[in-house]
Simulated scan of single mutants.
Amino acid sequence: MRKLLCGALALLLLVALGGYGLWTLQRPEGHYLSDLRVELALNHGEPGGRGNLLGVEPLLFPGDYQNLARLERKLAAYLQQARDQGLIDARTVVVLPEHVGTWLWARGEKNALYQVTHRREAWQWLELSNPLHYGVAMLRATGDDRRADAHLRMKAEQMAADYQQLFGGLAKRFQITLVAGSIILPAPFITEGVLHAGSGPLFNASVVFAADGSPLGQPQRQRYPDSELRRFVEPGAGAPAQVLDTPAGRLAVLVGSDSWYPQNYQRLHAQSVELIANPAFVTGRDPWQAPWRGNRHQPAAQALPLKRGEVSERDAWQRLTQAAGGGATSISVFARGQFWEQTVGGQGFVNHAGQSLAAPPSQGARMLNLWL
């Protein structure tokens, strides 16, 4: 009798495990409607044959990342509207916001992940749906927040491939130079024109794609990760400062709050930089008007001329970026939207010829254009 009972329990366990295994493989997709409109919030200067900097601030939600086709459709719709308005030609440099690639960790998951209201619930769905990958990633995770590290590490190879396919494809389709925001990957590198995830610590990095869809240079790592990232993202202080030749001029990328620090610009000016793209990201309710949070965990931030809480996020970003830039032409571009309970905001701006140019605050997707 005991053997019979044990056999029955073992069979039930095998059936349960088999059912769970099949459940983890199922990825049904629900219907999804998304607003594809975009506002031209700033259009400064006149076309003169030198090209333009075009910042695109997309309105994004978790459902946009359920598959690549959805995200590609939205971003391509914005770029097509820019083309229809005469804002895209062979010398155009398009800049997307920070972390537009990081959210690719959510690609290809169960419907429930996109429908819950809190990130922790989304994380639980991710872990339950990918138990083996998550377990292996936890064993390899580093940093103070090993859970966040594991979420990104377990999807890293897929994320790197998706990132290149999506943004390299958009660059080729619209024949533009595309600064593809940023993506968090373990020790990312490019070899023979292909972006790979390495096996080291996580870095927040940006890749620039040429008009033929190929990456230019190596991923530009963020040197000074902000307070929200420091628990699982490694500072890229040892990474070289790259200046890339583009049809519009010599271009460099400063990721996120790296635009605050004068030493970053000094390294770029030594290489005759002409254009600086700054993909950026801020969170919170009405984050642009909230007190500036600074970066109390970075020793370099102690030398900045502003103190935490002294001014708004808007004033801090605009003042620090203009003061540090040393006369370079730069554009700062922010993500917008809602990711579970986290509101993503910010209002992009341009520094050009000693002027700081910003459009009136607005909601929804926006574009900022500067003719060079």
Rank of each mutant, 00 (worst) to 15 (best):
E127W: 05
S34F: 11
L59N: 09
Q80H: 12
E121K: 06
D64R: 02
L87E: 12
T92H: 07
A106K: 00
V100L: 06
Y32K: 04
L12E: 04
L4G: 11
C6V: 15
G7I: 11
E39D: 14
R119D: 13
A90M: 09
N67Y: 00
P62K: 02
L132S: 01
D35H: 07
L113W: 01
A10L: 15
L25S: 13
Y134A: 09
L53H: 00
I88P: 00
V15W: 08
G63P: 00
V56R: 06
D64N: 14
L128V: 09
V93D: 02
L87I: 04
E46H: 03
L54N: 00
A122H: 00
L132N: 02
E57W: 03
N130Q: 14
K74L: 12
R119Y: 14
A141R: 04
C6P: 00
A8L: 14
Q115M: 04
L40R: 15
V38N: 02
R27A: 09
N130C: 07
T102I: 10
I88T: 08
S129C: 09
P97G: 02
L40C: 07
D35G: 09
L5N: 09
R91V: 02
F61P: 10
E98F: 06
L33Q: 13
V136M: 12
A76Y: 14
E127S: 14
Q124K: 11
K110V: 12
G45K: 01
L22K: 09
T92L: 06
L128A: 14
V56A: 03
G30A: 15
W123G: 11
N52W: 00
